[in-house]
Design a protein around this nucleic acid. Structure first.
Length: 563
RNA sequence: UGGGGUGUGGCGAAGUGGUCUAACGCACUGGUUUUUGGUAUCAGCACUCCUAGGUUCGAAUCCUAGCACCCCAGCCA
């Protein structure tokens, strides 16, 4: 069961260089209001890297009482789809952010952009180039050598205007011509070597259909869209630093209604996963995972399906900070945020993932008791429930060891443990199959210890969760772990080779206490001692499916690992 | 041999010349509590801030020179 999201973003002081800048712009009166935007390209699903940008852009706007637009950067119909537009909108919403008015689209400004391109031509600052893509690359020079000017660079304004309009009219095939800004072929910054600003793409656009066959490039659309929307602080990732001079050149040379400024911050990298749209797309298309919302994916939809609450994602992002230094964040920080929240928010139940049958020999055959169990030690208001106890129960296989070391506080031959909320039991016999596999335990219980306390004050070290065989409901439980075996997937030559073969484990014969039989889809519960689990959308009446959202910290596993 | 960035503990990240023998969080280690080996709680964890010089009474913070790493040669964003 989940509680409502608690708002964590209260107005804060400094925090990072961007907020510092915004605050100073506001206090010096450089601008009266902050306006930001989150500008995804609709060519894939949103992931945690985007969450960082979303929290930054929407967060800054909210903290400084400004606005933030959701704007789709839909300038390349070859890659973009309506499905992604819908998914992105849903994810931003789910993360808890509201944009101003309707979502915006770069394609809303195609007419304006075209007019500005014409004006650039008229000013002699843009020209149509007939060079092929290969030739343009050749002419561009290299990182260390200047480029050469295209022979078409000297075309007259009239000719340029005429051809550009005919490009728009559809007279030329893809790639035949491009419009380039006339800047400086010798610049050390390659983005300034006459960048292409319009290209011919005969492709239907998800929003504008077939009305256009030429499309502005990112550089010619992004900053201009910012200006049209009155964006004050255009926040993007580090790889666009080189584009800032071009961003500024275009703003200066175009009659834009405003002069937004671009600021760059380091993108988020997370250990043991990939946060690159290209790689995530590949995982989906090549079926290495089961879709964009596979719970192993670092996508917003994947995390949602796994049962990670939106608040915890916001909390996680807020702890990261915003800087210009590249880093790889340890996923255990996200784990911590999730546990911290769920510990307070999730009710407790008992569920046995790998059942081992236990028969309590001195417990009457037909007796059934309804025992009181607390729903949440963290929230008294959550109340209590009854759990059914009987002669035959299931316990976790890992809670029994035949040759148990001293440090093992659970069940072993001759040892006594507490069954949570029930009785003390002592293991008297171990039953094995022909293969020597333990298939059943025999125990005796102490009737004096009902509820889990011993009147004679004798202590037991271990407390086990259990489920009555008579009333147990069956469920499938899916366990997830890191999608990759390497922390730094960016360094890998072949990232697919590092996919963790054990990232998904499906347990099909789990036994849950009866109260879980009608658990609502998408709700999260803690199975005591095991972790937090959320019903998957595959779950149906009589065929429950739970995702393990997050395991509990496991000190015993650590002790074991140490040997 | 070009241009743009970044370098503070295992991972993030404060720090903007003295209060730095360097915050905070995660991770890790040890103790206490405990009917979840969960939670909570206490304690420990960088004589040092990429390196080397220099300026200064005083530097992680200023200067100089190196070194390392990242990004850029899509008609992708």
């Amino acid at each position: 069961m989940t509680t409502s999201d608690t708002e964590t973003d209260t107005p804060q002081e400094p925090r990072d260089f961007i907020r510092e800048r915004v605050r100073s712009d506001l206090t010096t009166g450089t601008m009266s209001q902050v306006v930001t935007r989150f500008p995804p390209e609709p060519n894939g699903y949103l992931h945690l890297g985007h969450a960082k940008s979303i929290c930054l852009n929407f967060g800054v706007a909210k903290e400084f009482e400004g606005r933030c637009n959701l704007r789709f950067d839909d300038t390349n119909p070859a890659k973009e789809e309506q499905e992604f537009i819908n998914a992105i909108s849903e994810d931003v919403n789910w993360l808890g952010f509201k944009w101003d008015d309707e979502p915006k689209y770069a394609s809303d400004y195609f007419d304006t952009l075209f007019g500005w391109a014409e004006q650039l031509i008229e000013a002699g600052k843009a020209y149509v180039d007939d060079l092929t893509a290969d030739e343009i690359r050749e002419y561009r020079g290299s990182l260390t050598e200047p480029g050469r000017e295209s022979p078409y660079r000297v075309r007259s304004v009239e000719e340029n205007l005429d051809i550009f309009r005919r490009m728009k009219a559809g007279e030329f095939p893809d790639g035949a011509k491009v419009l380039r800004a006339k800047i400086d072929m010798a610049s050390g910054n390659i983005n300034l070597r006459d960048p292409v600003i319009y290209r011919i793409v005969h492709k239907s656009h998800p929003r504008t259909g077939d009305t256009w066959c030429i499309y502005p490039t990112y550089d010619f659309a992004h900053g201009q869209s910012d200006a049209i929307e009155g964006i004050t602080h255009s926040l993007c990732t580090l790889e666009f630093e080189d584009h800032r001079p071009l961003y500024e050149w275009l703003i200066e040379n175009l009659p834009t209604p405003a002069s937004p400024k671009q600021y760059e911050f380091a993108r988020l990298n997370l250990g043991y996963t990939v946060l690159s749209k290209r790689k995530l797309t590949q995982l989906v298309q090549e079926n290495h995972v089961n879709g964009w919302d596979d719970p192993r994916m670092p996508t917003i939809s994947g995390l949602r399906r796994r049962g990670i609450p939106a608040v915890t994602i916001r909390d996680f992002i807020s702890r990261l900070g915003v800087t210009k230094s590249e880093s790889i964040v340890d996923p255990s920080l996200l784990d911590h945020c999730v546990r911290e929240h769920l510990n307070k928010a999730a009710q407790r139940r008992m569920g046995v993932l790998r059942p081992l049958k236990v028969v309590i020999e001195n417990y009457p055959e037909d007796q059934v008791e309804e025992l009181d169990a607390v729903n949440s030690p963290e929230d008294e208001a959550a109340g209590s429930r009854k759990v059914s106890f009987s002669r035959e129960i299931y316990i976790e296989r890992d809670d029994f060891m035949e040759d148990a070391p001293k440090k093992f506080f659970r069940l072993a031959p001759g040892r006594e443990v507490r069954l949570r909320y029930a009785y003390y039991v002592t293991c008297t016999d171990v039953i094995k199959d022909d293969a020597g596999e333990v298939v059943e335990l025999r125990c005796t219980y102490d009737p004096e210890t009902k509820g889990g306390d011993s009147p004679d004050g004798r202590k037991v070290k271990g407390t086990l969760h259990w489920v009555s065989a008579k009333t147990a409901v069956n469920a499938e439980i899916r366990l997830y772990s890191h999608l990759f075996t390497d922390e730094n997937t960016a360094k890998l030559e072949d990232f697919l080779a590092a996919i963790n073969p054990d990232s998904l484990e499906v347990l099909s014969d789990c036994k849950l206490e009866a109260s879980l039989g009608e658990w609502p889809v998408g709700s999260t519960v803690q199975f005591e001692r095991m972790g937090y689990f959320t019903t998957d959308l595959d779950s149906q009446d009589g065929a429950l499916v739970f995702n393990r959202s997050m395991a509990l910290r496991d000190t015993w596993a650590k002790i074991q690992a140490k040997g």
